[in-house]
Each structure stands twice: as C-alpha cells, then as structure tokens.
Amino acid sequence: MSIFVNKNSKVIFQGFTGEHATFHAEDALKIGTQVVGGVTPGKGGTTHLGLPVFDTVAEAVAATGADVSAVFVPPPFNADALMEAIDAGIKIAVTIADGVPIHDMVRLQRYRVGRDTIIIGPNTPGIITPEECKVGIMPSHIYQKGKVGIVSRSGTLNYEATEQIAALGLGISTSVGIGGDPINGTDFVTVLRAFEADPETEIVVMIGEIGGPQEVAAARWAKENMSKPVVGFVAGIAAPAGRRMGHAGAIISNEADTAKAKMDTMEALGLYVSRNPAHIGATVRRAMEENGIAID
C-alpha cells in the first residue's frame, strides 16, 4: 500500500512531448511506473516513447483507462489543463508548473467543488511511491521503499528530509509535495488523512514554510484524528517579514505566519517538532523510539 499512487496507477502525461515531460516520463518508466500514454493537442494519433499520443485527455482516458495525470503544461494554460483532467474523470492530477496565476487557482478550486479529483500542486516536485510510481520531477534514485510518509511544500527540502531519513536506514511509503504556491490543490490535511489510513505508513513527516494558516490547521487535525506520530518542521526561521522567499506562498504577512509561531503551535498540539532543518532525521528517530516503532 501507499497513498494516491501505486504500481496499479495508469499514468498519462499532459504536455507529453515537451522536454521535461519526456525526461521524467522516461525516469518514471525506469522505476516501474505504468505510463500508458500522453496528451499533446495537435499531435493526436502519433506515438512518443513508444506510447500513444492523444489530442484530449478524454480520448486518452477512454483508450488507456488512465486514472492519474502528470500535468507538464506551462503556467498560462495550466489551470485549463487541470480542468480538462477533472472533466475527463482523472482521479489524481499532479501539476508541476511554477508560476500559475493565483486567480486561475481560485477559479480552479471553485470548478473542483462537487468533483472528486485530487489536484497535487502547482509548483510541486510531485508525488512518488518508491519502486512503484513516480509522477513528478524528483530524483527517484534517492527514494527507497519504507514506512515513513513525507509531505512538504518544497521540493528540495523534501529531498533533504528524505536523505536524512535514509541515513537512519529508513525508507519512504509515499512522498507528496503539495507545492510552494499560496493556493494548493491539495492541503496538508488531505495528505495526512490519507497517510493515517494507509497501513504501510507508520510515521509522517510534515515540512511546511512561512506564510498561510495550513500547517497549524493540519497540526490541529492531526491532534484530533491521527494515531500515527507526526514530525514537523517549518522553514523560514531566519526569513524577514513581508518578503516572498522564493515561493509565491512563502511570505510572512502576520505574526501567525512566522516559522516560530507555527512550530510553537505544532509542539503545543503534540507534534514532534524539529526546530532545526538538519535534525529532521534525528527527530524521526526520537518519535519512532517513543512510539515503539521498529527502526530497521
């Protein structure tokens, strides 16, 4: 088991024939992902990487039975591509683009009401269930199979945490990047809920950033609803107020947005908080020991 994607997921790529989509489709195939085709409007009927290309997502779904889409469509057309995926009945759509206009996301989230597609991103490294399915741009070779679930806003900080966890001899059940934008298709709570329900995940690492109320909402949800330990870190202890720190969503607008305030609240709610980004692995170890979870 795992969350959202696994070896049975049938993946299509939107914007399939582009450079990045091609590179990461090849990498996804290498780890065993069932890539079943792709969509590039205007190139329907051709093949790419030996797989069929379609003009529309609906055609791709009808022909291949795809249920997951990796959306490699540039920001100006990204929200439209996501709506197309939702309309075609895709269950999980992962959208990589950094730079999707925020008003497009406001409209997209409204469009999603009453439909059950899970949108992961934008501005995300994607999602990976090691040795089964990669939908994104992360370096798949650093992810080993295991019992730790990871959810983060940032890509590189997700890799950093994964390396610290690997140094303990541990692997990952599924890793999810929810993205660095102010509006995420999927929030931390949705991912935590999935990890709680997943028998393969025994502990969860949640890595947030300055800006927005999400980390605290997730910590509250975890306190009420989770039996599994949650390790938390929030990046941006040293970030000045009022500046966007690289990610569109990483900005301190008020006291509650700061890394310290978020981590204080997380700790008060019973999460295992790593106050130092270099101590995420050590904090995972402590949480496992205290909860009698075997490190092997």
Binding site: S152, R153, S154, G155, T156, L157, N158, Y159, E160, G180, I207, E209, I210, A235, G236, I237, A238, A239, P240, R243, M245, G246, H247, A250, A259, R275, N276, P277, A278
Partner: peptide
C-alpha cells in the same frame, strides 16, 4: 535573490532548501 544583513553569502537550489540553509546558519 533577497539581500539580508549578515556576512555569510548563500547559493542554494530550491526555495525551501534556501530558507532552511538560512535557518541552519542562524541556528
């Protein structure tokens, strides 16, 4: 790039890791 007032220059890839690097220096 965002200028700050310290003396350790930072070159990092990714916004999250860049923030975390500033954090680690500060800590």
């Amino acid at each position: 790039y965002i200028a700050l007032d310290g003396n350790i220059g930072c070159i990092v890839n990714g916004a999250g890791l860049a923030m975390a690097s500033l954090d680690a220096i500060t800590l």
